[in-house]
Design a binder for these strands. Structure first.
Length: 757
DNA sequence: CCGTAACCGTTGTAGACAGCATGTC
DNA sequence: CTACAACGGTTACGG
């Protein structure tokens, strides 16, 4: 069956673009989408393999909506994916906007775009803040919709869909999903048409390698055994016939190890490869970057979250251009960007789960990796190859993965930990303001669709609501549940209620807090990503507890914070130590080496603590103004990675980490001293232009101050010890305070000894 | 004397969303 | 508190 683009109700401009790109007709599954009512406003679940044209379907539907005055929201799970889609959709005659945590215009301004690409969390946040344009969305596209079943973030996605549907009755929803076990249920939930197909534009062969050959279903392919390791031989084989290979492994160490092995087996020498290697080392001299550069020189690379953003990009680009022949990667690449290769080699189908050990990965994830095989239009076929260790293992791999059906996905929203913030969000945004409304909201969820019996959900909802009340987040007025100021703030700041309570309790009980204490507290919250403990860390942690134990604000196994485990507490110490180094101006390279982590990890930690400390500051402003100044200072120090002494300088526009440090070292430690020194002397350190503008700025601020206008937040350097009183404009709402628990039992909590790991 | 294989106990284990207000070298 | 593989250290063996 052929379907020409001519007959489709899409704008002519878009059609021309498609023609120019060589698209003449639709793929079979795309035709089914049209038949199922894509252009008739019908909801659709499209469950087809990766790279079989889902994006195109969504794009056509979006342009169709825009042409008749509609507005579209495209939801993705990763920020990297958001920019990828932004690029895909750009330049086709409609306005595209991008909304993610670290890259957004003013929320309201975003409403002028025709298509808004956003992460699910960002949409959640926009819904909580009742952003105006959200209600004018006519088409909602959910990319990777199967992530509804994801333990960590699935509930957010589910709630976003439910809330959007709740607010807008005429909304069309298109869900793009990988192959899952129960697509019919997903479609049933949304009363959607289901498009399901295994069709791929490039043929995919799945097989298992064992003793020198790949066994496919029915056929066999010999692979020359030039080297010892199976994955190396498989790579050499592919490269030899002109393809590229992607090797999936389960740990970073394995990724680096495999890349090294394969690189030396390849032994390429090309100027293009050397250029990439040089670029890697340009802004990043850490150990990982050096190892990576060495591998890339010979044609292979590794990829994992420890790499810096730049390094990751360079690897991805290099592979896409064909310069880099092999990437050995952790699952970062499996779920993320679209980076196909002719052959995908899957080294291990296990993953470590704390508490369970090595666990087999879900079939769905195997499919996701295998689906990366075969570049449409470039490769004659794609191959996914598993590695068998014995005759019986080969059979098992076929049975358990290649021939196995994908798992069913289930709703994740009926768990206490997610319901806490979900219900708070419902109440705080006036989505639901009493128990019945809360339940009725959840009756529109995927959970309710799957589990007809809602008695469990009902019970847990009332329990969670009561808990929120105990936390001081909501008040139950009988007829109506209302969010307290504290609760509303928590919801809008996008903090986990448990984090908020931890922050509030810890600050409330203390006269003095130190940066390290705050860092540890924030690292211990459920919102923070923590570093693993290694046995080598024991000594360091013990030492820090001895030195700085008094500063710690919360105790291990704190009875108030039942969610704070024993390990979490020590992980938080380690993580806080790393961040303390960061604000102590220890270089990234040094930190990386000291704790055997990569620049990417450091970035991730700094980023995470950065928004948490901002949240903490906003909480402090309302609840505990006495600590406001110290936390505001800490926020600035984290953002720039500087010591306290640079604070007065870093506040100047045009002065960052490096310039502030060189000014300070040259003896100019305050804005006052800089002004007195004059443009000429300062220009020698920071250049003429910056010198002029900062001195101008200093003078402006001083005039502002003299005239009694306190709004200039420049802290006059010569009076550092006379700390400015934190400004606080409201009264503390007593209802929002937490006055529970026996404070004295917790006071000295920082002192306990570390026992063993 | 050295290299290798074989063995054994020890060690470490993936990922990255959100707020906010603007500007580094 | 799970299970697996890679690593480091040691020993045994063979050239």
């Amino acid at each position: 069956m052929e379907l020409s683009l001519e007959t489709l109700p899409i704008p002519d401009g878009l059609r021309d673009q498609y023609y120019a790109a060589g698209i003449r007709s639709l793929y079979p599954p795309q035709i089914t989408c049209v038949d199922e009512g894509l252009f008739l406003g019908r909801n659709l679940i499209i469950s087809i393999p990766t790279a079989s044209g889902k994006t195109l379907v969504a794009e056509m539907a979006m342009h169709h909506h825009i042409a008749s005055g509609g507005k579209c929201l495209y939801v993705v799970p990763l920020k990297a994916l958001a920019s990828e889609k932004y690029d895909d959709f750009s330049g086709k005659g409609v306005k595209i906007g991008i909304a993610t945590g670290d890259f957004d215009r003013k929320d309201e301004l975003l409403g002028r775009s025709d298509i808004i690409v956003a992460t699910s969390e960002k949409v959640d946040s926009l819904l909580r803040n009742r952003t105006g344009w959200i209600s004018s969305i006519t088409l909602l596209v959910i990319d990777e919709m199967h992530l509804i079943g994801d333990e960590g973030r699935g509930a957010t996605l589910e709630m976003v869909i439910a809330t959007m549907r709740n607010r807008n009755q005429n909304l069309q929803v298109i869900g793009l999903s990988a192959t899952i076990g129960n697509p019919k249920e997903l479609a049933g939930w949304l009363s959607a048409g289901l498009v399901q197909s295994d069709w791929r534009p490039v043929d995919l062969r799945e097989g298992v390698y064992y003793k020198g050959s790949i066994r496919f279903d029915g056929s066999k392919r010999e692979v020359a055994s030039l080297k010892k390791d199976a994955d190396t031989n498989l790579c050499l084989d592919t490269i030899q016939e002109g393809g590229q290979a992607l090797v999936f492994v389960s740990s970073r160490r394995n990724a680096e190890g495999a890349a090294k092995r394969i690189a030396s087996a390849l032994g390429l020498e090309e100027p293009a490869l050397n250029r990439i290697a040089d670029q890697i080392l340009e802004n990043d001299e850490s150990g990982v970057a050096q190892a990576l550069a060495l591998c890339i020189k010979k044609g292979a690379a590794f990829h994992h979250a420890g790499l810096s953003r730049d390094a990751r990009k360079l690897v991805e680009e290099g592979f896409r251009k064909g310069t880099i022949r092999v990437i050995a990667s952790t699952p970062t690449l499996a779920a993320g960007l679209n980076l196909p290769a002719r052959r995908v080699i899957i080294n291990s189908l296990h993953r470590f789960v704390p508490g369970e050990g090595q666990v087999a990965i879900p079939v769905r994830e195997y499919r996701q990796m295998a689906g990366r095989a075969g570049r449409p239009g470039l490769d004659p076929y794609g191959e996914a190859v598993l590695i068998g260790k014995s005759e019986s293992a080969v059979k098992e791999l076929f049975r358990e993965f290649i021939c196995a059906p994908a798992e069913e996905i289930d709703s994740q929203c009926a768990k206490k930990s997610v319901l806490l913030s979900r219900i708070l969000a419902l109440v705080a945004s006036n989505e639901a303001t009493d128990n019945d409304a809360i339940l009725s909201f959840f009756s529109g969820s995927f959970y309710a669709f799957r589990h007809r019996n809602l008695s469990y959900l009902t019970r847990i909802c009332t329990r969670v609501t009561r808990e929120l009340e105990e936390m001081g987040m909501v008040v139950d007025l009988g007829s109506r549940i209302e969010a307290t100021v504290f609760g509303e703030l928590t919801s809008k700041l996008y903090l986990d209620p448990r984090s908020s309570v931890m922050i509030q309790t810890a600050f409330h009980e203390r006269e003095t807090v130190t940066p390290f204490g705050i860092l540890h507290l924030l690292c211990a919250t459920p919102d923070m990503f923590r570093l693993f403990l290694r046995s080598a860390d024991e000594e360091l942690i013990e030492h820090v507890i001895e030195e700085q134990g008094e500063e710690i604000l919360i105790g291990e196994g704190e009875h108030l914070f039942s969610w704070l485990g024993y390990d979490d507490f020590y992980q938080a110490i380690k993580t806080a130590i790393v961040l303390q180094d960061w604000i102590g101006e220890v270089s990234v390279e040094m930190i990386a080496e000291r704790y055997s982590i990569g620049p990417g990890d450091i970035h991730g930690l700094v980023d995470g603590i950065g928004w948490l400390v901002h949240g903490a500051r906003e909480l402090c402003r309302r609840e505990m103004p006495a600590h406001l100044q110290i936390i505001a200072d800490l926020e600035l120090r984290i953002r720039h990675g500087v010591k306290e002494e640079l604070l007065p300088l870093i506040r100047l526009r045009g002065i960052g980490r490096v310039r502030a440090r060189s000014l300070f070292n040259s003896g100019y430690t305050t804005p006052g001293e800089i002004r007195d020194a004059g443009v000429e002397k300062i220009a020698r350190i920071v250049g003429q232009k910056t010198a002029e503008s900062i001195i101008q700025e200093i003078q402006n601020k001083e005039i502002g101050k003299r005239s009694g206008n306190q709004s200039g937040n420049l802290e006059s350097g010569e009076k550092r010890e006379k700390k400015k009183r934190p400004r606080y404009d409201g009264k503390v709402n007593d209802e929002t305070r937490l006055d529970r628990g026996d404070a004295s039992t917790r006071r000295k909590s920082g002192q306990q000894r570390i026992l063993d790991f």
